[in-house]
Simulated scan of single mutants.
Amino acid sequence: MKESTNRTLITNPKNIICIGLNYADHIEETSLATHDFPEIFMKTSNALASHQDIVPIQDENLHYDYEGELVIVIGKAGKNICREQARDHILGYTIGNDVSARSLQFRGSQ
């Protein structure tokens, strides 16, 4: 099977918007309260690493954890988009490895 050459490289994304506590096993693991709305938080673009990059661990004494994440890349701006038109705004999908220092993460809600 021939690999597609139609690729879009995003080197400096404008926003990295994350959804936390979005599945039951993780909520149970963290013992955090749930809400009727998504837990939204942001990451800066310097939090990104490329394929096979090394993720620097700054403090070996902190408890680090990692999670595989579905990443949805938005390629078309919009506001108040109805469910039926949401896919028109998606550029593509990929996977991500979210690395967190749990002791720092649990100081606040995210």
Results as ranks from 00 to 15, higher is better:
Met1Tyr: 10
Lys2Glu: 12
Glu3Tyr: 12
Ser4Gln: 07
Thr5Tyr: 01
Asn6Ala: 09
Arg7Asn: 11
Leu9Gln: 12
Thr11Cys: 09
Asn12Ser: 15
Asn12Ala: 15
Asn12Gly: 10
Pro13Glu: 06
Lys14Glu: 08
Asn15Glu: 08
Ile16Asp: 00
Ile16Leu: 09
Ile17Met: 09
Ile17Lys: 05
Cys18Met: 03
Ile19Lys: 04
Gly20Asn: 00
Tyr23Ala: 09
Ala24Cys: 06
Asp25Leu: 13
His26Thr: 07
His26Glu: 06
Ile27Leu: 06
Glu28Trp: 02
Thr30Pro: 00
Thr30Trp: 02
Ala33Gln: 11
Thr34Leu: 07
His35Cys: 11
Phe37Pro: 01
Phe37His: 12
Pro38Trp: 05
Glu39Gln: 13
Met42Gly: 06
Lys43Glu: 04
Ser45Val: 15
Ser45Arg: 13
Leu48Ile: 14
Leu48Lys: 05
His51Val: 15
His51Trp: 11
Gln52His: 13
Asp53Ile: 10
Asp53Met: 10
Ile54Phe: 03
Pro56Ile: 06
Gln58Val: 10
Gln58Arg: 09
Asp59Gly: 04
Glu60Phe: 05
Glu60Asp: 11
Glu60Pro: 06
Glu60Trp: 02
Asn61Asp: 12
Leu62Thr: 07
His63Val: 15
Tyr66Gln: 11
Glu67Asn: 03
Glu69Lys: 03
Glu69Arg: 01
Leu70Cys: 06
Val71Tyr: 00
Ile72Pro: 00
Ile74Trp: 00
Gly75Arg: 05
Ala77Met: 05
Ala77Trp: 01
Gly78Tyr: 00
Gly78Asn: 05
Gly78Leu: 07
Ile81Phe: 02
Glu84Leu: 13
Glu84Ser: 14
Gln85Tyr: 10
His89Val: 08
Ile90Met: 03
Leu91Ile: 02
Gly92Cys: 05
Thr94Glu: 02
Ile95Ser: 08
Gly96Met: 05
Asp98Ser: 06
Val99Asn: 03
Val99Ser: 05
Ala101Gln: 04
Leu104Gln: 11
Leu104Cys: 10
Leu104His: 06
Gln105Ile: 08
Gly108Leu: 10
Gly108Ile: 11
Ser109Met: 10
Ser109Phe: 07
Ser109Asp: 08
